[in-house]
Design a protein around this nucleic acid. Structure first.
Length: 585
RNA sequence: GGGGGCGUAGUGUAGCGGUUAACACGUCGGCCUGUCAAGCCGAAGAUCGCGGGUUCGAUUCCCGUCGCUCCCGCCA
């Protein structure tokens, strides 16, 4: 239906007769002369109608409106002198239309397709197919395509095999809430959608594929966020005979090459810095630090241990911490602004926020009268505060201090414009604890997942001090967002059983839930490990989008509905019956 | 489950205890042969999300509810 795409027309086509098809992006009707900007995926081109060229075409063009789908035939010609549009790739030429076919009329769309105006998310999602016509979403989804294509090529070049794993899987008690699918053929039984292909890919290692990857859809029935959807996509891969360094090197090289190929953003540091979990927590209070700016956390506990300020002294004595960060140039913050910051830390469980301002006449502070000169000097020395800076300190249990100050750091980083929006600051975080204590379940639970191996020398600790065992796991972090995580897995039944026991899973339960895996391990499972990268988050970062919804064609709302399809929706009584289901009141 | 923000013509916003509810873009009609965010003239278009309350009077204040959104919990 078309001989060439709109956006590809250039001077070299002048004199040729072409047939174009697309959407009317914009119409400028001058009476005797009518212009369309004709749009297809490749871009825009101006087409001209006048009675001098074709009276019927010109007459019909009067009836055309934006978003009509049309086909035009005409001759490409150079634009007259002075009428060249430098803002358009096709601005040197235009098409004189001799024939116009309206392939389909269009209602006036609920929002402008031809300009990048803000539109309520509600309306955008209700008419997602129109939203997707707009430049922003076209650009984002094409970027996503480029990224997945790059990844597939890279994986293929590195000898990885793309293998599909089931969507109808089995529910497991560990981890996130499963999406569950009732079985018609087996009354009262259910499949579960994969939270990740974790077990299947490990079985593929036992099966001898050595290098597997998949761009895999995963499902978790948890509440949504800007960076979390019910279903999401990850680059999932697994390697046999690989150590953690092998996986990390492969992924690091891939990410660097990918970023250089598809993005003009700059990588801040290569190779990526590697932080231990403990180091990340100490310096940033969080295991996914945003390394685009400094403002690290400073431990003041020893400096103020003997302070006359009761909160400091008591917190230190009780084994807590006093930590601070130094906000450059923020001494000018008003009382009201500091109150706002105080709200930030209180929302994270801190009881208050101590502030100290460095000025030319010395230190001003909410607690100035309690501090000795020695203590003041120590605080300034430790924080490296310079004139005009604002020091903010929190005293509490280490977990609260970390949480409060990391939130504060993130907020201040943005507000003080310490972040270069063109920068990609990546790092690896390693040496995570294998287990953490769950108060709710009063048992140890896996920090990563229950197939993660401890570091080899750490196994003996599992029985004596489970919380101290370090996992052979690694996360890759970009701009404060976790974009991937992986580990070296357990590959023998003994260690796997050991870990299940540590997790409070009885041998019987382990057999029932994971017997297939334990059995597989007894048939010659190679040492293996892998990683999963969150594709949606990765694309969002490179598209400079705040929410992964902007890089997903048909996302769900924050309340887990689809406004276009109107899902979820009830099913018929007949369907319920077939599935052996009854709706409880 | 909890907390915050938002909801006013098709879209984006303004407004505010008493308005003819304003502006821009869009839409519709007219004029127009060089525009490209075309221009000029004219017009239509809003039960101010929904329900209740306070009030002489509510789009405005209060309560509830629904929707969108951000965050906490949750997310191995």
């Amino acid at each position: 239906m078309k001989s060439i795409n709109c956006g590809l027309l250039r001077k070299e086509h002048v004199g040729q007769s072409v047939t174009l098809a697309g959407w009317v992006h914009r119409r400028r009707d001058h009476g005797g002369l009518i212009f369309f900007d004709l749009r297809d995926r490749s871009g825009l081109v101006q087409v001209v109608f006048s009675a001098d060229i074709s009276e019927p075409a010109h007459k019909q063009a009067e009836t055309v409106r934006p978003e009509f789908v049309v086909q035009v035939t005409g001759v490409v010609r150079s634009r007259p002198q002075g009428l060249i549009n430098p803002n358009l790739d096709t601005g040197d030429i235009e098409v004189e239309v001799s024939e116009l076919t309206i392939l389909n009329a269009a209602k006036t769309p609920p929002f402008a397709i031809n300009e990048e105006t803000e539109v309520r998310d509600e309306v955008r999602l209700r008419y997602r197919y129109l939203d997707l016509r707009r430049q922003r979403m076209q650009k984002n989804l094409l970027l996503r395509h480029k990224i997945t294509t790059f990844i597939r090529n890279y994986m293929d070049a590195n000898d990885f095999v793309d293998i599909e794993t089931p969507i109808l899987l089995k529910s497991t008690p560990e981890g996130a809430r499963d999406f569950v699918v009732p079985s018609r053929l087996h009354a009262g039984k259910f499949y579960a959608l994969p939270q990740s292909p974790q077990q299947m890919k490990q079985l593929l290692m036992v099966a001898g594929f050595e290098r597997y990857y998949q761009i895999a859809r995963c499902f978790r029935d948890e509440d949504l966020r800007a960076d979390r959807q019910l279903e999401f996509t990850q680059l999932d891969l697994e390697m046999s005979f690989a150590e953690s360094d092998d996986v990390r090197a492969l992924i690091e090289a891939m990410l660097i090459q990918l970023f250089e190929e598809v993005s003009d953003m700059k990588i801040r540091q290569k190779p990526f810095p590697v932080l231990t979990y403990q180091e990340a927590m100490d310096r940033f209070g969080i295991d996914r630090p945003d390394l685009r700016f400094g403002m690290e956390l400073i431990d003041l506990t020893e400096a103020v241990r003997g302070s006359k300020f009761g909160v400091f002294a008591n917190t230190a004595a009780a084994g807590g911490q006093i930590k601070a960060l130094c906000a450059p140039g923020a001494a000018s913050f008003s009382r009201k602004k500091i109150d706002q910051l105080t709200e930030t830390v209180k929302a994270r469980g801190a009881k208050g926020l101590v502030w100290l301002k460095t000025a030319n006449d010395g230190l001003r502070s909410s607690i100035a009268k309690f501090l000795t000169e020695e203590e003041k000097d120590a605080i300034i020395d430790l924080t490296g505060a310079e004139e005009g800076d604002l020091i903010l300190a929190v005293a509490d249990k280490p977990a609260v201090v970390a949480d409060a100050l990391s939130a504060l750091r993130t907020q201040l980083g943005a507000e003080l414009r310490l972040i270069d929006p063109d920068e990609l600051a990546l790092c690896w975080v390693v040496d995570f604890p294998l287990l953490e204590w769950s108060e709710e379940e009063s048992r140890w639970v896996a920090v990563h997942h229950p197939f993660t191996s401890a570091k080899p020398e750490q196994w003996p600790l599992l029985e004596t001090d489970p919380g101290a065992v370090l996992a052979n796991a690694y996360d890759v972090v970009c701009n404060g967002m976790e974009i991937g995580g992986g580990s070296i897995r357990i590959h023998d039944a003994e260690h796997q059983s050991l870990l299940f026991r540590a997790l409070g899973i009885s041998d019987e339960e382990a057999q029932e839930q994971f017997g297939h895996l334990l059995e597989a391990f007894s048939y010659g499972a190679p040492p293996h490990g892998g990683i999963a990268l969150g594709l949606d988050r990765l694309v969002a970062i490179l598209a400079r989008e705040e929410s992964i919804r902007e890089v997903i064609a048909f996302p769900k709302t924050a309340s887990a509905t689809d406004l276009l399809l109107n899902s979820p929706s009830p099913i018929s009584e007949r369907q319920l019956q077939e599935l052996h289901l009854k709706i409880a009141e």
